[in-house]
Simulated assay, not measured.
Amino acid sequence: MTERAQSTQRALRLGTRRSKLAMAQSGQVADTVRRLTGRPVELVEITTYGDTSREHLAQIGGTGVFVTALRDALFAGEVDFAVHSLKDLPTAQHDDLVLAAIPVREDPRDVLVARDGLPLAELAASAPGGVVRIGTGAPRRMAQLNAYARDHGLRIETVAIRGNVDTRIGYVRSGELDAVVLAAAGLNRLGRIGEVTEFLPVDAVLPAPGQGALAIECLSADTDLVAALAQLDDAHTRAAVTAERSLLAALEAGCSAPVGALADLVAGDQDVHELRLRGVVGTTDGSTLVQLSTTGPVPTSHDDAVALGRELASEMLAKGAAGLMGERAL
């Protein structure tokens, strides 16, 4: 398409939250859409309830608080498509909307940003009273960090915090906290991965279902746009996060529940042929965790991926997971 022809086309309007991270990841999607479709794309900044409320996510319901305003803009015709962090999306898909694309996933791991560049195992040596104060707003992280500390003879105090990346890292820079836990994907997209002190192994801290993945959503009736955006979709990422979100849905838990999940591809001799799904539910003090995994053929359909998640959720519920999800870190 010539530059002149492109300039005569109406720009596609991409709805995004106003945070630096949301703008960064939406900007990356916009660049890709421009390249693939030849159409101009403009960002439309939208403020969500989750951005303005100072309460912790568990108090305001968690599920959908960063999503509803973007979806309202889609229905009102104010934007053509929206970019979400997939882990923020409710597990039940709206009938009139479609996840047109789930691009290649970023690093799903959690990371530590700590004072003096120290990893977790070394922080205690110089912490007052030997107690490491770690900030996070996620009950999931609290549960697993507390369990990890207990198993490794560490003394930690998890402190509930909210705010953007600058605010959270600021607690460490000011000395109020010894460390904070963030998602590697967000720091990567902001170009700040160099500030990471330690990548937390998924064997110790499973990420949130869908962490590191983006969701590109539009009206299902806009079939031309659905087809255009589908070029950004990555089949392996979609299968993995569908299994993770199916687990979350089958546990009847929201995005603020203390649930971690990760589906990753298992390579065989010649090619990838299996998908391993791991899940964890725990009390926020780390005293009790239900952690299980299952492995099956790489899903070739949405239903196959959903079935894998439901299978593992059933096993976790049989082990007592339901009784652990009522606890929230407030």
Rank of each mutant, 00 (worst) to 15 (best):
H56T: 07
L57P: 03
A58Q: 12
G61T: 04
G62Y: 03
T63C: 01
T63E: 12
G64M: 02
F66G: 01
F66R: 05
V67L: 04
T68D: 07
T68I: 08
R71L: 04
R71F: 07
L74S: 08
F75A: 14
F75N: 06
G77F: 06
A82C: 10
L86W: 12
D88S: 15
D88M: 15
D88N: 14
D88A: 15
L89H: 10
T91S: 14
A92W: 05
A92Y: 02
Q93I: 13
H94S: 13
D95L: 12
D96G: 15
D96K: 14
L97E: 10
A100P: 00
P103G: 07
R105I: 13
E106P: 00
D107N: 15
P108Q: 12
P108Y: 13
P108K: 12
D110E: 14
V113T: 00
V113Q: 04
A114H: 03
R115V: 15
G117L: 10
G117A: 09
L118V: 09
A121S: 14
A121P: 04
L123Q: 15
L123C: 14
A125R: 14
A125W: 03
S126R: 13
A127L: 03
A127F: 03
R133I: 09
R133W: 11
R133S: 13
G135C: 03
G135D: 05
T136F: 07
T136N: 09
T136W: 06
G137V: 13
A143T: 01
A143G: 00
A143K: 00
N146C: 07
N146Q: 11
Y148S: 05
Y148K: 00
A149Q: 02
A149F: 03
A149Y: 03
A149P: 04
A149L: 08
D151F: 01
D151M: 09
G153C: 02
L154D: 00
L154A: 01
R155I: 00
